[in-house]
Amino acid sequence: MRQSTATYILIFVFLTAGIFIKNPFILNMVSLSALTVITVLGLNLLLGYAGQVSLGHAGFVAMGAYISSILSIKTGLNPWLSIAIASAITTVVAAFIGYPTLKLKGHYLAMATLAIGEIIYMLANNLITLTGGHQGLTGIPMLSIGNFTFDSEKKFYFFSWAVVLLFAFVSNRIINSHYGRALKAIHEKEAAAKSFGVNVHLYKVAIFSLSAFYAAISGGLYAFYIGFISPSSFSLLKSIDYIVMAFVGGIDSIFGSIITTVILGSLPNILTSLQDFWPIVNGGLLVVAAMFMTRGLGGLIKWKRNTF
């Protein structure tokens, strides 16, 4: 089976499951996982196709969440429009960070994004008049289309997985376009890609900005769903969670990432008593994946290859 087909089937399984799940706790948990999936899909593009790590994706999620909710609270802007504006701003900021750091090899992007993540986290904590500080921001309105408001767990569940479907589709289209093949070539052998006339630097900056865009959308939707945001939801540990999900799921596997994200996103909510062990578990998963299965869970399955 082709991986893209398997991915769409998986998402449809989640969508139909929503009809039968009655428990609001589970619905809420899986919809939040769906929002995380969007961020992880973005990170997948960066890891798998630019071969780079971002340690600040929680910061981009935070930018999406804070900018959009501040816009719609203070100016009464339409939530959809404010999410769009917030995502645009985040994308530009990411391009700004990516431009110098992606010229350099290796760890520079990781460290610069780590710094950006920390800066955003500290701003969210300290700009109290705007963000409410560590007590958080409340009174964020709900999303609605016309007279239809996403005010129950069930409605948002279908909506969030529909958004996942949309983004998985976009990712798949990008991966299988000439643009995606160029990126794949960059990841395999940069010098070769260059000699075929691929503008390596531009492509890397673009894919990094796109992955920040995914994160910002996810953050915006999160803010308008929960109606309350505080800095603790966007700490560095979250960024590392995203890396674990994307890397263990498989850096170039959308299918694997969705599965690991739903599992790793839900387990801490079920096993709350083991909270203190999560950093060790996450670290252990990363170590095992990096040592023995660099292509992650999705790499274990033999997919039918796309013929170009």
């Binding site: 890396i243 203190d276 060790i280 670290g283 252990g284 990363l286 170590v287 990096a290 040592m291 660099t294």
Partner: peptide, 24 residues
């Protein structure tokens, strides 16, 4: 012990080790 010591894998590996040390 890393089977395929590429740069990305090594970065992710040391992040994982950092998490384990911190959690422990």
């Amino acid at each position: 012990g890393t089977r395929n010591p590429q740069e990305l894998a090594l970065i992710v590996l040391t992040i994982g080790i950092a998490m384990i040390l911190r959690g422990t």
